[in-house]
Nucleic acid binder design. Sequence first.
DNA 1: TGTAAAATGTTGCAATTGCAACAATGAAGT
DNA 2: ACTTCATTGTTGCAATTGCAACATTTTACA
Lengths: 211, 211
Amino acid sequence: MLNPFQNISPKNREKLLYTLESSRLTFPKNELILSNINQGNIIGIVIKGMMQIIKTDYNGTRTIIEELEENDIFGTIISPLSNEYDILTKEESTVYIIDYDEIKNLDLENKSYYNQFLKNLLEIIILKIEERNNRIEILTKKTIRNKLLEYFNIESKKNGLRVINLPFNFTDLADYLAIDRSAMSRELKYLKEEGFIEIKNHKITLLYDKY
Amino acid sequence: MLNPFQNISPKNREKLLYTLESSRLTFPKNELILSNINQGNIIGIVIKGMMQIIKTDYNGTRTIIEELEENDIFGTIISPLSNEYDILTKEESTVYIIDYDEIKNLDLENKSYYNQFLKNLLEIIILKIEERNNRIEILTKKTIRNKLLEYFNIESKKNGLRVINLPFNFTDLADYLAIDRSAMSRELKYLKEEGFIEIKNHKITLLYDKY
DNA sequence: TGTAAAATGTTGCAATTGCAACAATGAAGT
DNA sequence: ACTTCATTGTTGCAATTGCAACATTTTACA
């Protein structure tokens, strides 16, 4: 993920964060955060650690909306963060929290670092749109097999390899693809038997030419 | 949709568009556009008209990715615009096309309208993320009924009414929800019979209290 | 290192869905 | 107003999926 402070000197970065009245917060592992911060529109920036945006609906089905890593941004305006959503730290994590209105109202047109910051945010959010588009692409496929294959292709394209390092365990992958875990397991078995893929640990090798 | 030139005077807007080397193009109704522009990363701004981003996959299934109206922005970096995607004008439409690299490389930090333009783009794209999040929310529902109900709730929340004016015809709605049209038709019939909804023309009235 | 909890694999079965095929209705254009 | 094309409604049926239940393996951590 692109650094939101790219092309901004450490000094200017500090100035910026000060002007925007940001707060720097650290949370321990496996903690639900943001329920306490969640007033108004905020943008969070992950400085260190790993977190997940998780939705749990009324019947208890958990869905991972997004995984957040270093330099990732999140917030009420970027991810859906109503009371139905949680942010869970997977490791100890440090974040900056910035009021989005501060960003909107700032008028430092003679400061090029502010300009740069806006450009960086724009670029990051465009990347997030791309992620969403990919997910939609997968979810609109009508069969489990096609969802899996679409997912494989997207992941494979990302780094140009035919080997995919699953960033999830299988339970979470099923959540991400919005399919039943056991049904997914069954379909993966068929894909293996038919020689389309190979699975070792959490690495999937694509054996077919192209999809 | 928010105006990308909000808080920018017409004069500065012209300067900006000139500096960014934008082109103004007009297309007739029912035309596939952007196949000819599609080199490099561009941002398009809809000045007038209506368009749809449409995907047709190998077996011919059409999916409406997005509807574009006045002030909407689109482009290779915002919508997936590989060769699998088309933009179709539903009316005669006029657009500006801007090279995204021009935006990234511009360094007019002493011009507040450039700053304002970046803020506007940021805000618009954040709205687009919200749309994507909504769609994902719907698509992760496992049954047709739940997809429909989720869609109804989201649309109903948008304007606080229990009456939804479908922006689609039913065929397109089924595409949007990624379900079979006839199966959707069947489910809508059940929902009517069970007294959950009423349908007149292309207006759906929600008769249940809350979901 | 031992133990509890989480993740994974497997399978039968019922429910849901997509598909195909067709009728009926509505819309658009000449 | 008439004809053609697009949209909508309907239904049977086969295929796919979710669900439940359980065995097995792996992981976490006290």
